[in-house]
């Protein structure tokens, strides 16, 4: 489904992402772990077309994302770490706006919005302007807007930021349901528990390089070796790279 080949991003002399290779298969819930500043958001922004790679390629179903951006973006739903939305639009208008960008007709958008209201429990405030929303409310509108066109691949950057426990639980459930229905999710996070709880595959990036890329079972096995302490394992893995 998604393949990163020798992907690199440099900002001047600084290498944020260092020729990484990754493969994400259809239906996987792929956890992309890493400490702050490891290169997670940079990688995600390159996949979504917001940052151009300095080297390497990104393929989505065999299509080069940067050579055929329109075709590949049609298949992606992106949820950024900061839910910036147009503050003078209401939640409903924002969803109509998003649907229109993905060439959906009004009837479909209307149905999809009703569906999202039900799933994400956003009915109480969807007709208020987003400038009045809390961070969590904005996050849910952004999630709804990413789902509206039924994307084959959902790219999520730090999905739990700003969400209360109920919303976080809801989002995790939605992600699991989506992957069960064949949608692929590529999720960056530094929340180890979230990865452990819902992901099927995991990759750890540190200082721009991939240091672990395996199934979640491998991570479990490594965790057992570390007295069931995932946090300790993560610190050890990222520290080893530093040494």
């Amino acid at each position: 489904m998604l393949e990163l080949k020798e992907l690199e991003k440099k900002f001047g002399n600084f290498t944020a992402v260092n020729k990484i290779n990754l493969k994400v298969n259809k239906g996987q819930l792929f956890g992309f772990l890493g400490p702050n500043g490891a290169g997670k958001t940079t990688t995600i922004k390159m996949i979504c077309g917001l940052l151009s790679p300095s080297y390497g390629n990104i393929f989505l179903d065999g299509i080069d994302v940067w050579k055929n951006p329109i075709e590949s973006k049609m298949k992606i739903g992106y949820i950024p770490d900061q839910p910036f939305v147009y503050d003078k639009l209401t939640g409903r208008e924002y969803l109509y706006f998003s649907g229109g960008l993905f060439k959906l007709d009004k009837k479909t958008i209307k149905l999809k919005i009703e569906e999202q209201i039900e799933t994400l429990k956003i009915g109480n405030w969807i007709d208020k302007r987003t400038e009045e929303y809390s961070q969590g409310m904005k996050q849910r509108i952004v999630i709804a807007s990413a789902f509206i066109h039924n994307p084959e691949l959902i790219i999520v950057d730090e999905p739990m930021v700003g969400l209360d426990p109920q919303s976080a639980f809801l989002v995790k459930k939605i992600f699991k349901d989506k992957t069960a229905n064949g949608t692929t999710i590529f999720m960056s996070t530094h929340s180890l528990n979230v990865v452990e709880e819902i992901c099927t595959h995991v990759s750890i990036i540190n200082k721009g390089s991939i240091i672990l890329n395996d199934s979640i079972d491998t991570l479990h096995r490594l965790k057992v070796e570390k007295n069931n302490n995932l946090e300790e394992l993560f610190i050890q893995l990222t520290n080893e790279e530093d040494e």
Binding site: Y86, K88, L101, K103
Partner: peptide, 30 residues
């Protein structure tokens, strides 16, 4: 404040292509 569905409301039909309509209406409302 109550949001009034104006002439530029997203739910109204338009003769523009959906992408053009979305950007145009967003800009007008903003």
């Amino acid at each position: 404040r109550k949001e009034i569905t104006t002439f530029f409301g997203f739910e109204r039909k338009s003769f523009f292509r959906s992408q053009v309509e979305s950007i145009l209406k967003k800009d007008i409302l903003m």
